[in-house]
């Protein structure tokens, strides 16, 4: 199916790829040349209806039948055939040479990847569905978040969406968010955080809340679940230090290659869980269906801070790379627009 992208988001993983900071783990599951852009709201070429792209190129999109076990169970994010089938390797649209990506005026997608956008949903809300589905999948990756003391590290698009997902679907007893910038903290509070703090302040807040003792770099107790939406060595190190023994660290943000002392993981029997993409959640519902609901109920379209025409890609990428510092959250391309002025909401 041919698609004409309307809006296409710039994701942290896109920036890591462009700046050559992404892990080489991806090499066998991408194919060059590719056009980036996997957060896409587009118009179908056949009937003109707006759709959101479920970007993972699983077995169905690759015409592999029977599908792998995860795909058969609806867990498309865990597809085992990302380098096989009749498509070139590519874990998602935007990383595959044959399908194109959202940062363009045209791309193709398999019917199974498309979700119709309701008439009353705006483009900005629709473009948030894919990243929100990722966040939601991460939020639901650890059932113990429900009723537990939960900390979210990072309050960019992923962190804020995850806060909204936790508040709507997990209801922790306390939800603490470490945010680097004031506007992120304000949004986090608005989306359901009980407490916001800086990364430096997080151990202090968790220590008080859990009545732990403190040692250098760690608490005696800590949060039940930590969601690391940053994926840096510092954030993971902190996560392991402020997670209670027996707790869970969910790695939601795409990690950078790193060296890490995993002794705390071992000694404190912490579970480290990865949460990638989306699919079917443990409650049997599709991540995208829940994401549509969440984007609407939490008004997550407001996280889109600026829209750029493709021709101003350098500015757009610079803005996205400095989004937090510039008081922004999500930066998107607007491929159908060629105005030099572009449009900005915030």
């Amino acid at each position: 199916m041919t698609l004409e992208p309307v809006l296409a988001g710039i994701c942290g993983s896109d920036l890591a790829t462009i700046s050559a900071k992404a892990s080489r783990w991806f090499e066998p599951i991408v194919s060059f040349p590719f056009t980036p852009g996997h957060e896409v709201v587009a118009v179908r070429g056949d009937n003109g209806r707006r759709v959101v792209l479920e970007a993972v190129l699983g077995c169905k999109a690759r015409a592999i039948d029977p599908p792998c076990e995860p795909c058969a169970e609806g867990r498309v994010g865990s597809c085992q055939n990302l380098a096989f089938g009749h498509l070139s390797p590519g874990l998602q649209s935007g990383y595959c040479s044959e399908v194109g990506g959202g940062w363009s005026e045209s791309m193709v997608a398999h019917e199974s990847q498309l979700h119709v956008v309701p008439e009353d949903m705006g483009d900005e809300a629709a473009v948030m569905v894919e990243p929100v589905a990722c966040a939601l999948h991460g939020a639901l990756a650890e059932p113990r978040a429900a009723g537990g003391i939960v900390a979210v590290l990072g309050a960019g698009t992923l962190g804020l969406s995850l806060v909204a997902a936790l508040a709507h679907y997990a209801t922790p007893s306390a939800l603490i968010v470490s945010a680097k910038h004031p506007h992120q903290a304000e949004l986090a509070k608005d989306l359901g955080a009980d407490v916001t703090t800086s990364a430096d302040g997080l151990p202090r807040v968790l220590r008080r809340m859990t009545r732990s003792l403190a040692l250098p770099g760690r608490l005696s107790g800590g949060a039940d679940v930590i969601y690391d939406c940053v994926g840096s060595p510092d954030s993971l190190r902190q996560a392991l230090g402020v997670c209670r023994p027996g707790g869970t660290v969910v790695l939601v943000g795409m990690p950078a290659p790193m060296r890490m002392d995993l002794t705390p993981l071992w000694q404190r029997e912490i579970r480290l869980v990865g949460a990638y993409a989306y699919g079917t959640e443990q409650n049997g519902r599709r991540s995208f269906d829940m994401a549509f609901e969440l984007v609407r109920s939490a008004d997550l379209g407001r996280l889109v801070s600026a829209r750029y025409p493709l021709e101003r890609y350098e500015e757009a990428l610079a803005h996205a790379a400095a989004a937090g510092r510039r008081g922004s959250v999500k930066i998107v391309f607007e491929p159908g627009i060629t105005s030099r002025a572009g449009r900005r909401n915030r």
Binding site: R207, R208, R211, L213
Partner: peptide, 11 residues
């Protein structure tokens, strides 16, 4: 009360 009985502050 929570501050007064906080084991870390007491320590």
């Amino acid at each position: 009360e929570s501050f007064a009985t906080d084991p870390w502050y007491i320590h």
